[in-house]
Every structure is written in structure tokens, then in C-alpha cells.
């Protein structure tokens, strides 16, 4: 009886450990396979590879689609992150500190871009931009402000969520002390509040950047004809073929984002962010 139970327990532990590592393996397998493929010397996928080569990485320098897509994604993501933070910091301050009617409702309202399916937001904005353009002659469809505005919308819920989570832990007494010593509102914000919540700011900036940089569904509707962001360029290439070139592009993206996450982990600790 006892030995049976022990055996069962040991088996259970083994199964649990196996399931944990299988889960991690499942998460990382597709990324590792892409990394592997990017070093194949043969262009058409066949395993095992004929040999290994770095030439696909050199070849990337001539791929205008990917370079232009990367630059556009980078520009849009940087602008969207800055604008997202600029509108979210004041809103978060008020939402955390204030006790007023409708606070909960406004919080939910600002979270809405996270709940509405991205493909629906993209379709709605596409139709809206075209109709606005017809009505007012303001060219929004396929324009940079339209694309950036849509990406700012995407970053707002992430910024608000991460900033409010950080502000809750901040003791208002510290700011009151600064005020009682004669500091004015803006000085308190710049010299006391923001430095104290900077892990939240870093986290919000990182998430906003990554959410914008990686967005596919909304950009798909809003880029100008002939223009692509990096995720769209990758998708369209993959619809056509899978080869070491696209794997090399993907690898560079993985390395870039991995480095950003690793830096965040060193600076603020990933466990506090996610």
C-alpha cells in the first residue's frame, strides 16, 4: 500500500516535471527552429541542412522591402510610444489619486482598445478614414498621422495598466512633503513623482513599443499602397515562401526584442512588469 503510494507519487512528480519542461519547450521550439533555419546554406527547406552559412544575413542588406518596413515600424513605434506615454501619464495620475464619480467607467473606457478585436478596429478605422477623407478632404487613409494615431490608441491600455499599477504603491505623503516645502505642481511631477515611478514608466514604454512594433492586424488596413511595416512584410513573404532569408529577418527581430526584454529584466525585473 505504502510503496504503491510512494511509487504513484514519484511517478506524479516525474510527470509534472516532464509537463513543465515540455511546456517551455513548446513555447520556445518555433523560435529555435527559425533561428536554425536562418543559418542553412540550402535555400529550399530540407532537413538535415546541406551545410551552414551566413550569406542570408548579408543578403538582407539588399532587401528594400524589409529595410523600409523595419524603418517605418521603428518610426511609428517610437512616435506611438512617446504619444501614448504623454497622454497616459496624466490620466493615470488622476485615475489613481482621484476619488470621483465615473472613475471606474473612464478606466474601463481607456482599456477598451485592448478588448475590441484588433482586426475589427483596423476595419473600422479604414472605413472611417476613407469617409472622413471624402467628407473633409483631410487625407487620413494611408497617411502617417492616421497610422500613428491608431498605434497610439493601441498603446494607451498598456500604458494605463502598467502606470496605475505602479502609482498605487506610491505614498502621496512624499509629494505632499515636497509641496509643503514650496515645490510647485510641475516641479513635483518632474522631480518627485516621475523618478519614483520610473520602473512603471520603463515598463509602459517597453510594452507600448513592442505592441506597436509587432502590430499586424491594424497596420494591414492603414498602410499606404506599396508601403509595408515589418510584420506585414514578413507575413506577405511567408505567404509566398519560407526560406533562410525570411528566417534571418525573423531572427533579427527576435534578437532585438529579446535584448529589450532582457534589459528591462535587468533594470526593473520582469516579474514586476508582467
Amino acid at each position: 500500500m505504502v510503496t504503491g503510494d510512494r511509487l504513484g507519487e514519484r511517478f506524479g512528480r516525474l510527470a509534472y516535471g516532464g509537463a513543465v519542461w515540455a511546456g517551455f519547450g513548446f513555447l520556445l521550439l518555433p523560435i529555435l527552429l527559425v533561428l536554425w533555419l536562418s543559418f542553412f546554406s540550402n535555400e529550399i527547406l530540407s532537413l538535415p541542412p546541406d551545410g551552414y552559412s551566413l550569406r542570408w544575413y548579408e543578403g538582407l542588406l539588399t532587401k528594400r522591402d524589409f529595410i523600409d518596413g523595419f524603418i517605418l515600424s521603428l518610426e511609428v513605434a517610437v512616435l506611438a510610444t512617446l504619444a501614448g506615454l504623454a497622454v497616459s501619464v496624466p490620466a493615470s495620475l488622476v485615475l489613481v489619486r482621484g476619488r470621483f464619480k465615473g472613475r471606474e467607467a473612464i478606466l474601463n473606457f481607456l482599456m477598451a482598445p485592448l478588448i475590441v478585436p484588433a482586426i475589427v478596429i483596423g476595419a473600422a478605422l479604414y472605413i472611417f478614414f476613407i469617409q472622413v477623407e471624402i467628407a473633409t478632404d483631410i487625407p487620413l487613409a494611408g497617411s502617417a498621422p492616421g497610422l500613428v494615431g491608431a498605434h497610439v490608441l493601441l498603446t494607451i491600455p498598456w500604458c494605463i495598466r502598467l502606470l496605475t499599477a505602479n502609482l498605487v504603491g506610491l505614498d502621496p505623503a512624499i509629494e505632499e512633503a515636497a509641496a509643503s516645502l514650496g515645490a510647485r505642481g510641475w516641479v513635483i511631477l518632474a522631480r518627485v513623482t516621475l523618478p519614483l515611478i520610473w520602473p512603471g514608466l520603463v515598463a509602459a514604454a517597453l510594452f507600448a513599443f513592442v505592441v506597436s512594433f509587432g502590430n499586424l492586424e491594424i497596420s494591414l488596413f492603414l498602410v499606404a499602397p506599396g508601403e509595408t511595416t515589418l510584420p506585414i512584410a514578413i507575413l506577405q513573404y511567408l505567404e509566398w515562401k519560407l526560406d533562410p532569408t525570411i528566417a534571418a529577418v525573423s531572427t533579427l527581430q527576435v534578437v532585438l526584442i529579446g535584448a529589450g526584454l532582457f534589459a528591462t529584466d535587468r533594470v526593473v525585473g520582469l516579474a514586476r512588469v508582467v
Binding site: 518555433p30 514578413i234 519560407l242 528566417a247
Partner: peptide, 11 residues
Amino acid sequence: FVGNAVRAAGW
């Protein structure tokens, strides 16, 4: 964070 298209490429 690496994007769904990249992961699909892996699969």
C-alpha cells in the same frame, strides 16, 4: 512579443 508571423514561420 516576437510576433505571430515569426512563430508561424517556426511551425
